[in-house]
Design a protein around this nucleic acid. Structure first.
Lengths: 230, 230
DNA sequence: TAAAATATATGACATAAATCAATTTTAATA
DNA sequence: TATTAAAATTGATTTATGTCATATATTTTA
């Protein structure tokens, strides 16, 4: 438990925001010459699982979900907020996108040519180190979620997601949830009906309050406890 | 399904074996001066979750399991064969081991000082690229397992592990399994009793044969089918 | 604004898989 | 080798969670 609570479910917003500040003016020019910005509307597919890739994406603003599907089952690996890379798994090696990326809110996506990123990694060691940090941190967060979804029961899993949304994604006890019940289900590995029931349970226990899309965390300590006991 | 079957559950044995061939003679000297070899016996703990780290490990020979525990539940993230790095998540950033590493067979572990690795990454771009490849490939494999354990039922999950053991770990249809029922359970996110029942099912369906620790895959196409339907 | 479509909610029911208890087999130790 | 401990097996039972059917909101579209 100790280790798992040190790291946490979702990445911090600020985390990757500074990685471009490391670059020199010259390097920023290289980056500028090899990038394109595209606006996606809420609900639009940004990356489709299985398609080929020649760019690394960077989320300038908005919110996206990253999911893996097969047949009619779907798993949301994580939610990414602004200032995060998307598809860094394709920097070297594997050429195809392993997952689908969908806009949860209107999102501004920056397409950066992979070879430009590689050039920067080559010539700027601090940038290189920073990308390692992002990549390895992402692995640790995935392990954490992997553990949660395979070892905890419904209430524990849902507590984990609520804590993540509040502390890491929206950084507030109150937030408007841009996720459907189905999304929450895919995020926690349960049926949508189970999501609904757990929300109901948490509301009757005064752990959360909801009104439409609005969610408020009322009892975070208890939520943390539920997360811990699983 | 298409994408998920392109990548696969477990890393290839050869994959990281060549990464040191990239290094120059001088760089090999640097590496030699910053490494120690230690022998671990079967069952011994190599890394304990939560301990601090100043080395990256490399498995020269043997077999290990990588697991995360909390309370009395435990998840085996993966099995690593010889010629694989262990603990690369700690290259930059996070200082503590997020998982426990245990020898499944007598194993020779090479401890490499993290700062030496960083130095090599800095000065040798091919080595750097190779480590990125290892790291990102590891992420993709984790996503794949994440999907398997959260979206598939017992038989599908167990089929996945059997295919992985046969095709990636032991590279043979017959192999001696150095894993207990409990290990197999922690690897597939189920109870040991369920593992036993599924092995029984697979044996009555002539999909596998077992004798003591010996396992033989008799019907791989069917195993693949079971994996696909989940 | 009305109508259709979609998302959410609720209860009844089914079932996959865990738990428990007891037995047998295998491995470890004196 | 005998004895003990641990692991594997089996069957009976319980339970967490999914599925299904239906109702009610809430969007979206005409």
């Amino acid at each position: 438990m100790a280790v798992l609570s040190q790291i946490n479910h979702c990445e911090d917003n600020e985390e990757t925001g500074n990685c471009f500040k490391i670059l020199t003016d010259q390097e920023m020019v290289l980056l500028e010459n090899n990038r394109t910005e595209i606006q996606f509307n809420k609900g639009e597919t940004i990356i489709k699982q299985g398609t080929k890739s020649s760019d690394i994406l960077y989320l300038k603003s908005g919110l996206v979900k990253i999911s893996i599907s097969s047949g009619d089952s779907s798993l949301i690996l994580c939610i990414k907020t602004k200032n995060h890379f998307i598809g860094i798994e394709n920097i070297y090696g594997y050429d195809y996108h392993a997952y689908t990326v969908t806009a949860l809110e209107d999102s501004m996506i920056c397409y950066i040519d992979t070879s430009a990123i590689r050039q920067l990694l080559k010539q700027n060691n601090n940038f290189n180190a920073e990308l390692y940090r992002i990549l390895t941190n992402n692995s640790l967060l995935t392990y954490d979620r992997f553990f949660s979804l395979t070892q905890k029961q419904l209430h524990g899993r849902f507590a984990d997601i609520l804590l993540c949304l509040s502390n890491k994604i929206f950084k507030s006890k109150k937030f408007d949830l841009p996720l459907s019940r189905k999304d929450l289900a895919d995020l926690t590995g349960m049926a949508p009906e189970s999501v609904i029931r757990i929300i109901k349970d948490f509301k009757t226990d005064k752990i959360i309050a909801t009104k439409g899309k609005r969610v408020e965390i009322l009892n975070e300590p208890l939520l943390q406890k539920i997360s811990n006991v699983g």
